[in-house]
Every structure is written in C-alpha cells, then in structure tokens.
Amino acid sequence: MRRRQFLILSAASIGGVLVYSLDRKASRVFAQEKSAQTLKIPLRFFTKDEAMIVAAAAARIFPSDDSGPGAKEAGVVIFIDRQLAGPWGRDRYRYAEGPFDENGAREFGYQGKATPRETYREGLKGLKDFDSLTSEQQDKKLQQIENTHLFALLRQNTIEGMFSDPVHGGNADMVGWQLVGFPGPRMSNYDEVDKHFGEAFRPKPVTLEQVLHRKVRPSEDEDTASA
C-alpha cells in the first residue's frame, strides 16, 4: 500500500468547508480562519502530483472568471478524488465482463476495459507538469485530448463536482448552486410553484444534511477499498 498523500491548498483559494482527516472525520473551516492558512487535505486515490494536474484541468474546463467562481473554489479535485476511491471509480456497478470492443460504435456507450481509476491514472501520465503550464498552453493541451475518454470523464466529473450536494466533497459552500440559482433539496415548493411566473425565484440554497438534520452517507463512502 502506498503512503497516503496530501493536497496542500491555500485556505483562501477554496470556498471549502469540508476537510477530511485520515479517519474520515470532517472538519469545518470557517471563513475567518481561512485568511493565511494552508489546508492539508488527505487524498484517497490521487497522488499529490496527479491531484495538482486534475485541479488545473478542472479549472480550465470550469474556470474562475468574470461569470463567477469555478472548479477551484468548489473543490472539484476533492470531489473527483473521492469518487475514484469509491465504488464508481472501480466500476463496482458496471458490467465489466469481456470480450471488450474498444472500437464499439458510440451508440453502445463506453465499451473499454479500463475503470475510471485506470483511465485517470494512465491518462494523467500524458499530462505531466500540466499544472505548471500557462492557461493558454493548458487549453491547447486539453484541446488535443478533447476526444479521449479521459477528457470525457474529466468534463463530466468537473460538472458533477461543481453541482453535487456538498456531502460529496465538491460544490463547497454551495458555490455551484449559487452560480445557477439552484436551491438544493427543498422539501416543499407548494406555496411557490404557481407564483413567480416570468421572474427568478431564488431561495437560499440548503444542503441535504441541513434539510435532514443528520449525517448522510454518500455512496463513495460505501466501499473505499485501497487504491
């Protein structure tokens, strides 16, 4: 088993609230504490170098810019790391028997043998030092791999990390939901659904744990066999 690695981030860079210690206990980082600190985030699957590459790529797919915060503030890389460590990352629920036809037509969906973990691990080898390139160089590099399965996963997982419930490690401080005006899991819209025609109705977002007043165990924690 390899030694656990950590992702070191400046606390100010991430809107983040969820930081996981080795025993998976979450600790909350409050805004006033964040100023000059760094966060040491235990990684479940990625090496530190891999995490830096994925964080940089996600930040080009969903940049932080004039239209608002992006993958960096949402903590997308933490989300992806946890997904890959969980059952989805190792294809626990995919039909994974051969023979495999890697060239199967698009209509059959992904037919490759590689699990998401393997696709990331192998694919990231081709993006060595990606995080130290300029934004322009990074975009060029991503355009080159735009038709690969790795890129399809990166794009899909980045959107997921932006907008999933924060219990999954991304969408920190619900920045993704605030960006698009999605209120999260509201138990009732009964009094509002026939009102606000033609105008934006944007209730303050809430997380699933806030709504249920209890801890929720996300699927990636169901089984986190060692990477």
Binding site: D91, S164, D165, L208
Partner: peptide, 18 residues
C-alpha cells in the same frame, strides 16, 4: 434520496449491470 449524484447519475435505484 434528494441527492442528484447518487440517485440521478449513479442510479442508486436501478438494476446493477454487474
């Protein structure tokens, strides 16, 4: 169940293709 990732995308309610 009000979790889009686990229910809508990872399909928690569906048959397990494996």
């Amino acid at each position: 169940g009000m979790d889009e990732l686990d229910y809508f995308v990872r399909m928690h309610m569906m048959q397990d293709p494996s």
